[in-house]
Computed example of a mutant assay.
Amino acid sequence: MEAKAALLVNLGSPDSPTEEDVRRYLNEFLMDKNVIDLPWPLRRLIVSLFVLPKRPAQSAKAYSSVWTDEGSPLVTICYRLLEQVRQYTDMPVELAMRYGRPDMESAIVKLAGNPEIKELLLFPLYPHYAMSTVKTVIDKAQAIISDNQLPISLNVHPIFYDHDDYIGALVNSARPWLEKDYDHLIFSYHGVPERHISKDDPTRSHCLKSDDCCHKPSHAHHTCYRHQIYRTSASFVEKANIPVDKYSVAFQSKLGRDKWLEPSTLDTIRQQAKQGAKKLLVICPAFVADCLETLEEIGMEAREEFIKAGGESLELIPCLNDNPEWAKLLSRWLEEPLKA
């Protein structure tokens, strides 16, 4: 009897918060053509001369501040999610990281080793499409299957940025924080270079061509990260009944000098403090599991900046992580995938 298996994939983490392991991880991550989308010689030059000499030491310090006894927060949380998902489905399910370990190749080869499995459902753990997240995971899976001549077909689960059940799970998980007294909610999304938005536009004539492009109907929205994060935010505030003047959308984690999506999260946080906000909430819906970018960049660095600017408290709303409602929803989507 033919069967299918599923592979959950997230970004990844260094093996440890040491400078050596962080350097190895950053090299793999940044040399991906979907992350730094430049010709290989130029990409190699940038990474070797401008990133790897100093960035590993800085990042290792940041990783050390969030590392747990179990290891990387991202990997640990994803394993806890995997165990819950396995409780709700009989389908073989594995976990992999696009960079680092557990690696995608080992997981796919393992699943394909079962002769009954003829279809692999690839589930990138990202609500929104971007070339540096979903596309690179798909490219890697396709290459692994081809290079190893594996006798399985690949089916990719669609993104789910505004699916009602996903928004519901997100709102429910955030409700304990939303019920507190707060002045403003910031949706902080991982930023991407504007050129990535333009490259992902299949029409080549819509994205970033006008101030309101994300709100005009277009086929380009199927692969437009910017449109999708605005839809997530709008759907969230509608379901959570948050007034339009009580939230903002911003972008974090800029790398390099290229023009990235704006406004920046840190600038938005400082502006809120300048306008008199004392209590901020920050939620990061581009991530389904807490990681360096949420725990350290927002939970520590952004909080420090807000207080320095005159604020009193900044609370990070945790990601969905291994929330039972999210685990059940995810396992249901594995059994009955959404339609693109």
Rank of each mutant, 00 (worst) to 15 (best):
V134R: 04
D267Y: 12
M131D: 13
R80N: 14
V282F: 07
Y126F: 13
S13N: 08
T294K: 06
G276W: 10
I152N: 03
I317A: 06
I229C: 14
S188A: 08
L266N: 12
V288E: 05
Y99S: 01
I117M: 00
P41K: 02
V9I: 03
G168F: 09
M131V: 11
I242S: 13
A6I: 00
L334I: 05
S233P: 05
A60Y: 01
V237A: 11
T232D: 06
A273C: 05
A96I: 02
R226L: 15
I298R: 02
E194P: 03
K135L: 13
K274E: 15
K118C: 02
P337L: 04
A57R: 11
G71D: 04
D69N: 15
T136F: 03
G100V: 00
I152L: 04
P92W: 05
A107N: 03
L45D: 04
A340C: 10
G299K: 04
R24D: 13
Y189D: 11
N34L: 12
Y129I: 04
P56M: 05
R231P: 10
R44W: 14
T203Q: 08
D211L: 08
A302F: 06
K239V: 12
V22N: 01
S253V: 01
S198Q: 15
Y25V: 02
I283N: 02
A3P: 02
S188W: 10
L280R: 07
T18V: 00
P158E: 03
E116C: 15
N114P: 07
L74P: 07
